[in-house]
């Protein structure tokens, strides 16, 4: 078990570095929505209605729900990487591809990402 923990820690490190390090480097459409409270609220509503019931949570919990308001990203933490993960899914996991199913198209997903960013812990 110790070996596994070490491996997980080591494998997380580059993800954290890549995810957090690049967030401020590549402005995205989510950044445009960040200054629009109505857009952020819509992102929150979608997150609450679609993401936060089981797989993700609004607050950290001792379950297997992946918490998205910290700096730990398994599949890349830049806005574009998050966009791609949600759109394409992650094979062999519960994270199914949402494709282009958002009610108001891609903007809805960018608003969700804006909501995540608006509540995210500052990354070191």
């Amino acid at each position: 078990m110790t070996t596994i923990k070490k491996l997980v820690s080591l494998s997380c490190l580059p993800i954290l570095l890549i995810g957090c390090g690049s967030q401020s480097e590549m402005p995205s459409k989510a950044d445009e929505f960040l200054s629009d409270p109505i857009a952020v609220q819509r992102g929150r509503s979608i997150f609450v209605g679609t993401c936060a019931g089981y797989c993700h949570k609004l607050t950290p919990e001792p379950t297997d729900a992946v918490y998205l308001f910290d700096c730990e990203w398994k599949h890349g933490g830049t806005d574009q990487q998050i966009f791609n993960t949600v759109t394409n899914g992650v094979p062999d996991t519960r994270m199914i591809a949402f494709g282009s199913n958002f009610p108001e198209g891609e903007d809805d997903l960018w608003k969700v990402i804006a909501f995540l960013k608006s509540n995210r812990t500052e990354c070191a």
Binding site: R42, R44, S45, I46, F47, V48, G49, T50, A52, G53, Y54, C55, L58, I96, A97, F98, G99, N101, F102, P103
Partner: peptide, 17 residues
């Protein structure tokens, strides 16, 4: 709590929590 949901087959479809 109510939220906005979208249906994707095989994906959870809660509309809130």
């Amino acid at each position: 709590q109510k939220g906005i949901s979208m249906h994707v087959e095989g994906q959870l479809f809660f509309g809130g929590l």
